[in-house]
């Protein structure tokens, strides 16, 4: 019998695990981007109360929030190929379903999952921007899209940032379920390595450490960005300008 707990292995297996870190980060990153874009779109539809679409989106959000991520991943894994087969049968096309890597299914499923949560976060952040500034932009002759991009989003971003940060952290953790779509990311790699030595406990400890460190890095990065985009507490006056000002007239 070997040692009950091999502490050294916890650390020596980390480099091999980290080989799959890029997969985990790509999965999380792409899913987050997809989630943000779809979430923004859904949020705007909800705010603008576009008839028909709003109900569809409420339905989707409710369904996504009401089901576990792992089930959604399985549905994507089995459902997307079926959908393609249906298209092929229906329209006589020849879309190569088998060529789509599991990675894509995982990004789609995780991204959709994320979008449901982002939609609510983004909606409340957008609505936190006061109506007056939006009217002021409109009064200047700016279009809604220009106002959205230049006035609303920068402010909403600051409001939403901490919550979106938590969302990113939770999606990083959700990527560990991507094995359901046959993606070998951090956790799957851990299982493979552990299968060789039957040192499951040690490997899971290694994984735990890695995820934890990633989370801490993200938290710090979010704090850094928050500080960076905050309006400074005070700024210095510029040297008095050339011409006589109203201020001076008033003494």
């Amino acid at each position: 019998m070997g040692k009950l707990f091999d502490l050294k292995l916890v650390f020596t297996s980390i480099p091999e695990l980290l080989e799959k870190l890029p997969i985990t980060l790509e999965l999380a990153g792409l899913a987050m981007v997809l989630g943000l874009l779809l979430g923004l779109l859904m949020a705007i539809i909800k705010i603008k109360k576009i008839k028909g679409l709003t109900q569809i989106i409420n339905f989707i959000i409710s369904a996504i929030r009401g089901t576990p991520v792992i089930v959604q991943l399985y549905i994507a894994f089995f459902g997307i190929p079926m959908f393609f087969k249906y298209l092929n049968q229906r329209f006589g096309t020849n879309l190569a379903v088998a060529d789509i890597p599991g990675f894509v299914y995982a990004v789609v499923a995780l991204g959709l999952n994320q979008s449901a949560f982002c939609a609510e976060i983004i909606r409340s952040a957008l609505q936190a921007v006061n109506e007056g500034q939006i009217e002021a932009a409109q009064a200047l002759g700016m279009t809604y899209l220009q106002t959205l991009r230049r006035i609303i989003l920068p402010q909403a971003f600051e409001v939403a940032l901490p919550t979106l940060g938590n969302s990113l952290i939770s999606i990083i953790k959700s990527t560990s379920l991507a094995f359901t779509c046959a993606v070998v990311e951090l956790t799957a790699q851990g299982r493979i390595i552990a299968g060789r030595s039957y040192r499951y406990f040690e490997l899971y400890i290694s994984l735990a450490i890695i995820y934890w460190v990633i989370t801490i890095i993200i938290e710090q990065a979010i704090k850094f960005i928050e500080k960076k985009i905050r309006i400074p507490d005070q700024v210095a006056l510029l040297p008095a300008a050339n011409s006589r000002s109203v201020e001076e007239e008033h003494g």
């Binding site: 500034q133 932009a137 009064a139 200047l140």
Partner: peptide, 19 residues
């Protein structure tokens, strides 16, 4: 759009862009 671009508005509560 032409109308909005050629009229200006000053509001009671200023409504400057905060950021």
């Amino acid at each position: 759009r032409y109308l909005q671009q050629h009229t200006g508005m000053v509001f009671q509560r200023f409504y400057l862009f905060e950021k």
